[in-house]
């Protein structure tokens, strides 16, 4: 017989793990499906200073481990390495189609599939990923000891990781398409005060060049003057926001620019289906609101299940 659950949580980042923590404490018959390992994007964040309760800060990896351990303590069943290729929200019960074959049906679903790093979409980027093009400073920073590199972006992630990368690289060029950074003030100040960071304003990457050993340089364009220039370096970290992990979602769920629309209780347009975390259509994408939304979504799921039972 096909597997059926009261609640399925799709995705194991902070939103999914928090939903799972609440669901396991509520004793729901629940499983979390995670295509990789629990943690999500937080896992690749070198240091987190803005998650309350940790006054000294902690690494993204440690926070993931703590969140996972906390959910497991209450018995959350986490299935890692399980990829879902399709979600049928028009059938009753709802159905999830697994990449490895088979399906799981559920009464209620929390979609917390998150987002992944956006790409520049310039020549050289795809071919050179892993050979000098990186989307994860904590993973790849130490390969660039005493070398010159670039970070592309101007938001919190880009500026914070540029500062982190000065621990390894001899020079970090922070290349931003505007004339001001979007990152929060304390992060900006850290970057401005760091002698290892050279900010290149109003500039976009047109091409990533390579030689036999991987990335060798960038072709840049100043968006105001139109002037082109080249920069010789061996690594480029692309940290320009995220794109939603929505490939498995059906057309019937309401999306805005690929992100799921919900109400304040995290309910989507489909009854019994909630969304939480970075997959939601929202302005702020922080660990703290991702986790908070996971809790709200689980409460909405509980409410839906109890009304349904009557």
């Amino acid at each position: 017989m096909a597997e059926h659950r009261q609640l399925v949580i799709l995705g194991g980042g902070p939103a999914g793990l928090t939903a799972g923590l609440y669901a396991s404490r509520a004793k729901l018959d629940c499983v979390m499906l995670e295509k990789g390992m629990p943690g999500g994007q937080v896992m690749v964040t070198d240091w987190i200073d803005n998650y309350p309760g940790f006054p000294e800060g902690l690494s993204g990896f440690d926070l993931c481990e703590k969140m996972t351990a906390q959910a497991k303590r209450f018995g959350l069943e986490i299935r890692s390495g399980v990829e879902v290729t399709g979600v049928d929200l028009e059938s009753e019960p709802r159905k999830l189609i697994l990449a490895a074959g088979g399906e799981i049906s559920c009464d209620s679903l929390i979609i917390a599939t998150g987002a992944r790093p956006n790409t520049l979409g310039v020549p050289g980027e795809k071919e050179l990923t892993g050979r000098g093009v990186s989307y994860c400073a904590t993973c790849d920073g130490p390969f660039f000891r005493d070398q010159e590199i670039a970070v592309i972006g101007g938001g919190n992630t880009a500026v914070q990781e540029a500062v982190y990368l000065t621990k390894f690289a001899k020079k970090v060029n922070l290349i931003h398409r505007r004339d001001e950074l979007r990152a929060t003030r304390i992060v900006q100040e850290q970057a401005m005060a760091n002698p290892g960071i050279n900010i290149i304003w109003d500039t976009v990457v047109q091409e990533i060049k390579s030689d036999d050993s991987g990335v060798s340089g960038l072709v840049l364009e100043n968006v105001k003057s139109g002037a082109k220039s080249e920069l010789t370096l061996s690594g480029v970290f692309v940290l320009i926001g995220t794109i939603p992990n929505n490939e498995m979602l059906p057309d019937c769920i309401e999306l805005v620019d690929g992100f799921i629309n919900t109400d304040a209780e995290m309910r989507t347009n489909i009854p019994g289906v909630m969304a939480a975390g970075d997959i939601r259509n929202k302005e702020v994408r922080q660990v703290i609101n991702g986790a908070g939304e996971g809790a709200v979504a689980e409460m909405a799921a509980e409410h839906y299940l109890s009304r349904r039972a009557k």
Binding site: G36, M37, P38, G39, M43, V44, S59, G60, F61, C64, S80, G81, C136, T138, C139, P142
Partner: peptide
């Protein structure tokens, strides 16, 4: 892999399996 890499630690158990 390397010990300082979070994602490496995360896929470790998968590789073991």
């Amino acid at each position: 892999w390397a010990p300082w890499c979070g994602p490496c630690k995360a896929i470790g158990p998968v590789v073991e399996e």
